[in-house]
Amino acid sequence: MRYELMIPTQIRKAIADNIPVVLPLGVLEYHGEHLCTGVDTLVITETLARLENEVPFIILPAFYYGASSYAVEGPEANGSIHNRPDILYPFASSLFMNLLRIGFRNIHIIVHHQSENFAAGMPTDLSFKLAARQTLFDFIERQSGEGWWGKADAANYYEGHEEGDNPFNWIQAYPLLSDSIQKEYPIDHAGKLETALMMAVCPEGVYMDHFSEDKWYTQTAKDANLEYGEAVLARVKDHLIAKLKPKS
């Protein structure tokens, strides 16, 4: 369900049912001559579109304007748009505070850009993860006052964690391709993996007639095919369903 098309009655029911709210978080970045700039976001949004009938969730309008960096290519005539973390953090903080005040407690941030070492993090996901943590502290303090953790009614805080009652899980961030998927299907930039996945989820963003081997990172794209992309997509769908399905 697209958030921008929801009416208040639907929003209230989603809150009552603790339906996941998903933010596709990405960038606009040069991906060789054969792929469009929105790859890192489109692989998320287009995969989610294929899950709408399998698990209930709300999809927020995608955020395309992360920190692409210019490590691959400069922006001139190549299309990359880079916003620094100091710009991303206040936006993310404001967004998360709004979502918490609305009443959502099951917020998911899905990332693909630079997610090969997600535990360590890269500027885009780190900005949003830090904003999520700090906003949760701010929100809980707004609700319960300073010293909330030290009060007597928080004495079972750690026991609650063991049972899954952890307010710091109200906002979660994770990569589109889990560690296990990446071991089976190695991640790349505009190579075989990304090109094949785009063939499966967004073929209109793939222009193999423009493919060039001039860049080392695109050379494996010549081996991309729809079958490989569909295999990756199947694993990603299973990964996301496990993350988004209601907990028993």
Rank of each mutant, 00 (worst) to 15 (best):
L5N: 12
T9P: 00
K13H: 03
N18S: 10
I19D: 02
V21H: 01
V22E: 01
P24F: 00
L25D: 09
G26H: 07
G26M: 03
E29G: 13
Y30K: 01
L35K: 08
V39Y: 01
T41F: 01
I44K: 04
I44P: 02
T45R: 05
T47A: 03
A49Y: 06
N53P: 02
E54A: 06
E54C: 07
E54Y: 00
V55F: 00
I58G: 12
I59P: 02
I59F: 04
A62I: 08
Y64H: 12
Y64W: 15
A67I: 11
S69M: 04
S69P: 02
E73R: 15
E76D: 10
N78G: 00
G79L: 10
S80N: 06
H82Q: 03
R84Y: 11
P85N: 11
D86V: 11
L88K: 05
L88D: 06
Y89T: 15
Y89S: 05
P90C: 07
N98T: 15
R101G: 05
R101C: 05
I107A: 04
H113K: 15
Q114F: 04
N117A: 13
P123M: 02
D125M: 09
L126A: 11
F128Q: 13
K129Y: 01
T135N: 13
D138N: 10
F139N: 03
G145T: 06
W148L: 12
K151Y: 03
K151Q: 13
D153T: 14
A155L: 05
N156E: 07
G160E: 13
G164N: 10
G164V: 11
G164C: 07
D165F: 04
F168A: 09
N169M: 13
N169K: 08
W170P: 00
Q172Y: 05
Q172H: 07
A173W: 00
A173R: 01
Y174K: 01
D179S: 12
Q182G: 14
K183N: 12
K183G: 12
P186E: 08
P186G: 06
P186M: 14
I187D: 08
G191W: 01
G191I: 02
T195I: 09
A196Q: 01
A196E: 10
L197F: 06
M198W: 09
M198D: 10
V201W: 08
C202H: 06
C202F: 15
P203L: 14
V206Y: 03
M208T: 10
D209K: 10
E213A: 13
Y217I: 00
T218Q: 02
Q219L: 03
Q219E: 14
A221Y: 05
K222C: 11
N225Y: 09
L226C: 08
E227H: 06
Y228S: 10
G229V: 07
E230W: 02
A231M: 10
R235L: 00
V236H: 10
K237P: 04
L240A: 09
I241N: 11
A242T: 02
K243Q: 14
